[in-house]
């Protein structure tokens, strides 16, 4: 569960049904949520306590959403994600100009809302890559450039390392080729296929960790 001190969210939304759904979803994800249904209430709440994040609908009764955004930003450095039904670029640019850190365009999904909130509240720090990585029963030593029980060529090791560094992400053949194979020149993306084929064969059962992603390329899975 996220730390309540860091995860209190001020939701400013005047549509009762939508606000209820958003509050439910945020609370069930472990966030503490205060709801304000108009701009004045939002400003009052913001001055009474500190929030980790503000979700602000730009169309509000009484006080315009942009005015609320401007006043909130002047008061403290709380990150503000604006929720907007506007489709004009000018609306977005104005929101960013006034200090919004992100926007969520209507209609949005709860999952999308949670992903955006999480992105702002728990920015993952890029951790140092461990110098020894396990892949099933095999251990990969990044310094010694060895894999237990397997002899990989320099290029094959580079490709495996590239995939390991981005474990869980789908990667295109072009991206792998330009990142792991290209040394001062372009490499045919299909060369990647033959390298991956050989790596899988050499890794044996652990070769299943490298899956083919339809329409994309390859991914080093977290689980085989």
């Amino acid at each position: 569960m996220p730390n309540p001190e860091r995860s209190s969210i001020l939701l400013v939304e005047d549509d009762a049904a939508m606000a209820a759904t958003m509050v439910r979803a945020l609370r069930s994800s472990g966030y503490e949520v205060e709801l304000a249904t108009d701009g004045e209430r939002a400003l009052a709440l913001a001055s009474s306590r500190t929030f980790a994040l503000v979700l602000l609908d730009l169309r509000l009764p009484f006080v315009d959403g942009y005015a609320v955004l401007e006043k909130l930003r002047k008061r403290d450095h709380v990150p503000i994600i604006v929720v907007t039904a506007g489709t004009e670029l000018a609306d977005r640019l104005k929101a960013f100009e006034l200090g919004a850190v992100d926007f969520l365009a209507k209609p949005f999904w709860i999952e999308e809302l949670l992903a955006r909130v999480q992105l702002r509240l728990k920015r993952p720090k890029r951790s140092e890559v461990a110098r020894r990585v396990s892949l099933g029963t095999r251990v990969i030593d990044l310094d010694a450039r060895t894999v237990t029980g397997v002899e990989l060529t320099r290029v094959e090791f580079d490709v495996l390392l590239f995939l390991l560094d981005r474990r869980g992400q789908a990667l295109t053949r072009d991206f792998i080729a330009s990142g792991a194979l290209s040394v001062g020149g372009e490499v045919d993306a299909r060369t990647v296929d033959s390298h991956i084929g050989r790596i899988r064969k050499k890794l044996g059962a652990e070769g299943l960790f490298i899956s083919t992603v339809w329409g994309v390329g390859y991914r080093c899975e977290l689980e085989p």
Binding site: M18, T21, R59, P107, W109
Partner: peptide, 14 residues
Amino acid sequence: VRTPTTSLQLSLEE
């Protein structure tokens, strides 16, 4: 239309 659509979409998602 976007606001009620959002509400509807969120409700359907739930």
